[in-house]
Amino acid sequence: MATDTAKFSIKDLDLWYGESQALKKITFDIQPNTITALIGPSGCGKSTFLRQLNRMNDLIDSVKVQGSVLYDGLDILNDCDVIELRQKVGMVFQKPNPFPMSIYDNVAYGPRLHGLATGKKRHRALDEIVERSLVHAALFDEVKDRMHKSALGLSGGQQQRLCIARVLAVEPDVLLMDEPTSALDPISTAKIESLLDDLKKQYTIVIVTHNMQQAGRVSDATGFFLTGEMVEFGKTDDIFFNPKDSRTESYISGRFG
């Protein structure tokens, strides 16, 4: 795969929490408009890696990073404005984390921050952004009658789709998802998975998952992490049915993790 077409190009990425190294020499490319799944046992560094792509790790004092991550050719570890980066590279978390405000205000939060709705008709414009984002996240029909009620009243699955809508509303380019369905029931999980397929037409998606069936179902490419290393990366079908590394094979066949 050629580097110049890649959305993200990661090279020799090392990361330490204080003294302990959590990522070791990670190197691979993420292609645009694909879903890349990152799998591996707990504590293998996949979430830490994901959080480096929009530099959420900056919020943790003890983290030190080395290597390079290029986003559309731009070095985001050194030469980049984090605030701008996070608008472009949105993130959905493991536990739904709606703000304690109305459904509408949750979705409008980002557009208001970044002044996405401007001009004389900015209220109308904001309404449109909110509606479009909710429709896109397949939540609109369920909440259209209670847009101004607290978001904390929604079910877990609805809350997670709200969080997706909230990210879509800032018009990102990439979606990072950190085990987005691990706290949800199977029906909500299915809804979000079918949503992903739809979203990939417009966005590049990187999803961390515990659930290997999920990785197999939704992703185009898969990377397998183990104790801070990227053991293997390739097309999902290859990883699942033709793994090159014996450790990948053991993990896929359920021998550890």
Partner: peptide, 18 residues
Amino acid sequence: MNSKKAPKTANQRHQREL
């Protein structure tokens, strides 16, 4: 929400926020 001297471009707005 917007102050009187609303910035014209997204970049100006961004710089102001920083």
